[in-house]
């Protein structure tokens, strides 16, 4: 198989939908073999049907035992690991007074602790492969804050700093660690946030108006940046956060 990722063995957490799904499709198209980890078993089955010959691993990234099991299963199925993409994530739109401790803890578990545990579990295998790549899907909201998203913004900013700190440590083993920071992307997650607004159409227009390019991204446009950070053309890029946000944060 030819392509920018020919023969690479990649674990994608949160692979079943949205940005993760687009990344899975693009990576397979570029010659990678993937292990797709997601809690949505139905969407995972659909992915398996669309991308036959790859590995699907049902489980919740917020569950440390499930993460450990999934990484082990990915390593067994693929015969090792050359890269990781952390694409699992949830949103939370809530006033600070309405946010419960459980709300906060769940957002942190899915958006920050889960990805860190995935990196930690995968790390020895990336070392054993003689190097590799980790790409964490953070958010433009982790660069530039949004109202009523205290937990979400904190989790996404935290994921970027975790990436950078690990990038220093991992460089000695030829492992590059980077983050992408999407703005609004046309996904189920984005749709559910818009639909939860009192006036969804007005909410959508308000989001769109924030972007210099005046439109919401497609998942494939984020997958393209994840591909680049995983491939050899970004060989000297590590510890960076790339905003793929149509011109909002001007990072």
């Amino acid at each position: 198989m030819s392509g920018a990722l020919a023969g690479r063995r990649i674990l994608i957490a949160g692979a079943a939908k949205g940005i993760g799904r687009a990344t899975a499709e693009r990576f397979v198209g570029e010659g990678a073999r993937i292990a797709a980890f997601d809690r949505d078993e139905q969407a995972l089955s659909a992915l398996a049907a669309a991308l036959p010959g790859n590995v699907t691993l049902p489980g919740d990234v917020a569950d440390p035992a499930a993460v450990a099991t999934a990484v082990q299963a990915a390593v067994s199925a693929l015969g090792g690991l050359d890269g990781v993409v952390n694409a699992a994530g949830i949103d939370l739109l809530a006033d600070i007074e309405a946010m419960t401790l459980a709300d906060w803890q769940h957002v942190i578990a899915v958006n920050l602790t889960g990805p860190v545990l995935v990196m930690q579990a995968a790390y020895p295998y990336l070392k054993a492969a003689g190097g590799g790549t980790i790409v964490n899907v953070s958010s433009a909201a982790g660069l530039s804050p949004l109202a009523r998203r205290t937990a979400y913004c904190a989790s996404k900013a935290g994921l970027q700093m975790a990436s950078k700190a690990l990038a220093i440590e991992a460089a000695a083993f030829g492992i590059r660690v980077n983050a992408v920071c999407p703005g609004a992307v046309e996904t189920d997650l984005f749709r559910s946030s818009i639909d939860a607004a009192a006036d969804p159409q007005a909410a959508y227009e308000a989001v769109r108006a924030r972007y210099a390019l005046q439109r919401v991204a497609e998942p494939a446009e984020i997958a393209a940046a994840i591909l680049w950070l995983t491939g050899d053309d970004s060989s000297y890029v590590t510890g960076t956060s790339i905003a793929v946000d149509g011109g909002r944060t001007f990072h």
Binding site: A212, V237, V244, G246
Partner: peptide
């Protein structure tokens, strides 16, 4: 490239992690 069509206004560091 077309792969970067949604990226604008950014400054991309290519420095092996010297500045993070």
């Amino acid at each position: 490239s077309d792969d970067a069509r949604y990226i604008t206004g950014q400054t991309l560091l290519i420095d092996g992690g010297r500045w993070m």
